[in-house]
Amino acid sequence: MKKTLVLTHEYYPFKGGVARYCHNLFKFFKNEEYLVVTDNLEVSSQKNIINTRLTWPYLKPSWLLAYFKLKKIIKNNQLEQIFTPNILPLGSLAYFLKVPYIISLHGLDINLAMANKPKLTRKILTGAKAVIANTENTAKITRDFLGQADFKIKVLYPSVDFDTSYDPIKLEAFRKKLGIGEEKIIMTLGRLNKRKGQDLVIEALAQLQNDYNFKYFIIGRGSENKNLELLIDKHKLSKQVFIFDNIDDEDLIYFFKLADYFVLPHRQSGHDIEGFGTVFLEAALCNLPIISGDSGGVKEIFNKPDQALLIPSDDLKALIKAIKFLLNNPLEADKLAQAAQQRAKQFKGSKAQSLILKEILK
């Protein structure tokens, strides 16, 4: 295959869906087959990763200085094509560098690009060597925007290589540390932002706290942390709702194993939609009953009603009803969990997805 520049704002170990998506696609490649260039502060330069500044907000275009920097990197490393999951602004860079490029789309990115720079977005998409989408939903949004129902887009779902093995002794240590007794444990894993809907879960549990014995573990970090803390205080839920903003990846399995339910009622917030939701696959593989929002790519994960409870965006009554259903009907909850687990096993692992990508990059 042609040596590829992976040009991205997000890459592992940064915790985010796009970062994991890219890392999982390339982690099985040989180092000499690709080079990552990123400006993410959590990613250090090493082996075949270069961390360097890519945008300057006071310049127009913001990537102007990076253009000259990347021309040198491309020449010095004999790079033949570019793969980028950031259509704007990095897709612009790829377009003007006059190097063959592949655009990877994830949901929010294409929505913002269409709204803010439609003409440039159209040029970038139609000029690409290939366009990859993380879901059929994202592919449809793109085709509808271009007005080309037959525009070629390859759908590569995010892969999941989630190791569900665990240390029973460590599990019991976590149980003791978290003070878990007879309560039912509800869990959410995801970035703390408005779209994810952690606030909606808190509002729902505030109305259920007198009737049910539960704890709610919110795992993640983000801009809504303070607002969620204020909401917890407002409803006097400090003994039932807890935020964990610094959990190592290897410890996530213990939260999944201690949980009884996974609840992430994501909403569509403006242009921001749930592109896919790998955490739903992880929860399903851990045999958890799931409550999800019904927007974005999640409907491609759970494509039958017996696999998860999907609720409309911002529908507090529907969320309360769904939570009560799971709490009151353990046998039905188990059936949901089993069906979700079987569905999750149908998705390809990252090694298989990498092989498909290699064909695209030839």
Results as ranks from 00 to 15, higher is better:
Q207D: 10
I153Q: 11
E300I: 14
S238P: 02
L54P: 10
K117I: 10
K15W: 00
D144H: 08
K317Y: 04
P118V: 07
K117H: 14
L65R: 08
T142W: 14
L112T: 05
F162N: 10
D315A: 13
K47G: 12
Q342P: 00
R53L: 13
A337W: 03
D314R: 12
I219W: 12
F26Y: 15
D315G: 12
F256N: 00
I253T: 08
K348W: 02
I186A: 11
H266L: 02
H266S: 14
H23S: 10
K2N: 15
S238Q: 15
E33W: 03
D211C: 04
E203H: 10
V155D: 06
S350A: 14
D199I: 05
P61H: 02
L355Y: 07
K362M: 08
P89C: 05
G127C: 09
A115H: 04
C22F: 05
L281Y: 07
L156I: 15
L205F: 07
K226D: 01
A352R: 11
Q307V: 13
F145D: 04
D245G: 15
L108N: 06
N77I: 12
S292D: 04
N77R: 09
N303R: 06
H9V: 02
V263S: 00
H23T: 09
K140S: 07
F302I: 11
K60C: 08
I219Y: 11
L252F: 08
D294T: 11
K196T: 13
K362D: 08
D251W: 06
D233G: 06
W63C: 02
K348Q: 11
C286W: 08
L35I: 13
A19D: 08
L64P: 00
K60T: 09
V43E: 01
F151V: 02
Y67H: 09
P100M: 02
K234Y: 13
L361Q: 00
L192I: 04
Q148C: 06
S269R: 13
L54H: 07
E10G: 00
N246Y: 06
L171R: 03
A337Q: 03
F29W: 10
S223G: 07
L146V: 03
H271P: 05
F302T: 06
L237T: 05
R122Q: 14
E274V: 11
D334A: 15
K351T: 05
R221Y: 12
Y261P: 04
K362N: 12
E80I: 01
I202H: 04
I360F: 11
T164N: 07
K226P: 00
Q307A: 14
W56N: 14
G16I: 08
K140C: 01
K129A: 10
A339L: 04
L125P: 14
N210L: 08
V43H: 07
L41V: 14
D144N: 15
K317L: 06
I360D: 02
Y95E: 06
L200S: 06
D251Y: 10
Q307H: 06
I180S: 04
L319P: 05
H266P: 01
V160C: 15
Y95R: 14
D260V: 00
K123M: 13
L331F: 01
D163Y: 03
N40I: 09
G220K: 11
Q353H: 12
K348S: 12
G270W: 00
P13Q: 07
A115M: 08
N287L: 13
S313I: 03
